[in-house]
Design a protein around this nucleic acid. Structure first.
Lengths: 180, 180
DNA sequence: TATTGTTATACTCTATAACTATA
DNA sequence: TATAGTTATAGAGTATAACAATA
């Protein structure tokens, strides 16, 4: 439990971090804005998946996901095939063109970050990644479960010193769809 | 200098952190969205200032700042008085009503953060705050003046070959105002 | 002529709600 | 009836450009 002062600080830091995101976004090609880049990145990292899973990983409503996916599909970067097991679903998969774009994006992000974070150590980047991952996890139930259980779910609180091997994984949000 | 893997991780974390910001934003009163709250918070923290200074602190263009400021001024939360020393400028100052609103906002942020970050220690919050602050600083020259690259003008430019297409490094130097 | 701030317009991202087509 | 996904519409946030008033 932290002090009010720290929480206010955190709120302002989060508010201000948008500038960094916009700065990073400026290196992207105009055909592939941040939302599209996120779709490609997640499909690369987690492999083929359905819309609903992608919406969960992006922590945005499926309606929004649908538009991002349409954008990248129109450009041939992903492939939407029908799921034979459930014809309502569509399986999203990177195409070779998508992988090419991803390689381009990776170069651009790499250059920008290597430039701006030149004086950051390995450990510091790892630490920031770990804390951001944990922050996301702590806010993971923002959308679906408003009625917070009095007893916090026995989510094993990760101990701080996170080994730089495996990144903190997605927050496993409940649903990503407009409440029924 | 970190590894490509870590940079990609960071890019994804930053992309996903928007969900946390939106989650926090949901606790705000509808009359006072995040942009307005940021204006009030910065005026509280740094004291009265001019538009240009506020735009700098928010790291957004002054045109955008102008709209946020208009919003909060219309509601009587701040006061825009002419600067006697320069009639083009306006001095922004919190009103008592603004401080009341700020107290309300603080309660709301406090409750939300205390709820979601219940299992975070003091030190962890501090650590995250410090790293976010440093991240912002490292990206600080994204918009602002090129700030005379103190040491090496022939600074280590992009180490990696730039893929064909659009320039990776944006024209860099920018003030908080649309380029003239 | 340069600077401070405002306004007009456009674009990105998101949410809600209504719709379709399967299940 | 419920679920997977789409589309329509609205709103917040931002950027660029053109403008007004002052320096």
């Amino acid at each position: 439990m932290a002090a009010r002062r720290q929480y206010q600080e955190l709120a302002q830091q989060l508010s201000a971090i948008g500038a960094v995101k916009r700065g990073l976004g400026r290196v992207l090609p105009s055909e592939c804005p941040a939302g599209s880049a996120a779709v490609l990145g997640l499909l690369d990292r987690h492999g083929e998946m359905r819309m609903s899973r992608l919406a969960e990983l992006m922590a945005i409503d499926m309606s929004v996901t649908s538009r991002h996916v349409a954008h990248v599909a129109e450009r041939g970067w992903i492939d939407r095939s029908a799921d034979p097991a459930d014809k309502r679903s569509r399986i999203l998969r990177l195409t070779p063109a998508g992988r090419d774009m991803l390689a381009d994006l990776s170069e651009r992000y790499m250059n920008a970050l290597a430039h701006h974070l030149a004086d950051w150590s390995d450990d510091e980047v790892d630490q920031l990644n770990a804390l951001l991952g944990r922050l996301r996890a702590s806010f993971g139930d923002c959308r679906a479960a408003p009625a917070a259980p009095a007893v916090p779910p026995p989510a094993a609180p990760p101990v701080l010193p996170v080994p730089p091997g495996e990144p903190v994984e997605a927050p496993a949000a409940r649903t990503t769809r407009t409440p029924l």
